[in-house]
Computed example of a mutant assay.
Amino acid sequence: MFNFFHKKYFLKDYLEGYIDIHNHVLPGIDDGAADVEASVELINRFKSLGISKLIATPHVMNDYYPNTSSSIRQAHHHLQQLLKDKNIQIEIKPAAEYMMDQAFLDLLEREDLLCLKDNMVLVEMSYFQPPINLNEILFKLQTAQYRTVLAHPERYAYFHSKSLNKYSDLKSRGCLFQLNLLSLVGHYGRNMQEIAYRLLEEGMIDFLGTDTHQLRHLEKLSTASFRKKDLELILPVIQNTKKVFAY
């Protein structure tokens, strides 16, 4: 039962049992945790927020982070061994955040994708422009029986419009949307925050993730608070994320 009589409603009070499906805690393979010590710091901070299950999603970006399913599993195994040695209890499942580029199409062709769950694959786009063959990529994912989960749709400024018609088009092509909790607290700027809330209001957001790269991201979320009307938009998506990705 939620108590809405307080002036501030802190996010951390509603994260018990939440599963973070987008983060960069695996050590040394992208722009997230630089090493295992940084990974442990992030994980302990997650646990302090009541989050004890993570789906790790390192970047797979051919020009910058050419990770493979093998390198991701290796980093995951290394981290799991360290956590076991330190007696830190947390569940971490390896997956990935794939840049939709030609290299991704090659992986798709080889069916070498690490999914969030079952056939759900987390993808992203450049912040400067969408792939010129975006519709082709989405069609191929659908044809191969994958469900596309688009990471942080609110951060693609070229999709921002009064009508949100570009987002509607993506939804009609079978895209599920994962919004960053950091967007809701203005971490990426007011424009991203406003679009994030509009997408919530329109019922377009399916899942929430932290997209944590650094300790300061979790520190910001640990103090985040919302108005009652905003929390009422956020809580159903938190619950849906917990329900869909329970493992």
Rank of each mutant, 00 (worst) to 15 (best):
K86G: 03
I29D: 00
N62V: 01
V25G: 01
I88S: 09
D106Y: 08
L107G: 05
M120K: 15
L134E: 06
Y167R: 04
F104W: 03
Q145I: 09
M120L: 12
S161C: 06
L122Y: 10
D35F: 05
M99Q: 09
E41Y: 05
L113I: 12
I55L: 06
N62H: 13
S70M: 10
D118I: 08
L141V: 04
F104M: 02
Y156N: 06
K47V: 01
P58A: 02
P66R: 04
L164V: 06
M100P: 01
P131Q: 02
D30S: 08
E97M: 05
L82S: 11
A96P: 13
S48M: 11
Q142H: 13
N44S: 12
S168F: 11
S48V: 10
S52L: 05
H152N: 12
E37Y: 10
F104V: 03
K162T: 07
A75Y: 01
A157T: 13
R110I: 01
A34Y: 07
F104C: 02
S48K: 13
D31P: 03
D169T: 12
L105V: 08
T143M: 14
L82E: 15
T143Q: 14
I88L: 11
S172T: 10
N87K: 13
E37N: 14
S39V: 02
I92M: 08
H76M: 00
V40N: 05
L79S: 01
V149L: 11
D106C: 06
S126C: 04
H78D: 15
E97Q: 10
S52W: 06
V123E: 14
N135C: 09
L122H: 07
D85L: 09
R147T: 15
H78Y: 14
M99H: 10
A33C: 06
S70R: 14
P66T: 04
A151Q: 02
V149F: 10
Q74F: 09
L107E: 13
Q81C: 10
K140G: 01
D63P: 06
G50Q: 10
K140Q: 15
G50C: 11
I29L: 07
V40L: 09
R155Y: 01
L150K: 06
A96E: 08
K162P: 07
M61W: 12
T68L: 08
N44W: 05
N119V: 09
H76P: 10
S48D: 15
I132N: 15
Y98C: 03
L82A: 11
C115D: 03
N133K: 11
A95G: 06
E136G: 09
F128Q: 12
K166Y: 13
S39H: 07
K166N: 15
I51H: 04
S70P: 00
E111I: 08
L134M: 14
S161D: 13
A33E: 02
D106Q: 13
L134P: 08
D101W: 03
R45P: 00
K162W: 11
P27N: 05
L49E: 04
I29P: 01
D118N: 14
D101C: 05
K84M: 10
S163H: 10
L150H: 06
I43T: 04
I72E: 00
K117L: 12
S70G: 05
K93F: 11
G28V: 02
P94N: 02
Y127R: 11
S71P: 05
L113H: 09
K117T: 14
R147S: 14
I51A: 03
Y64T: 04
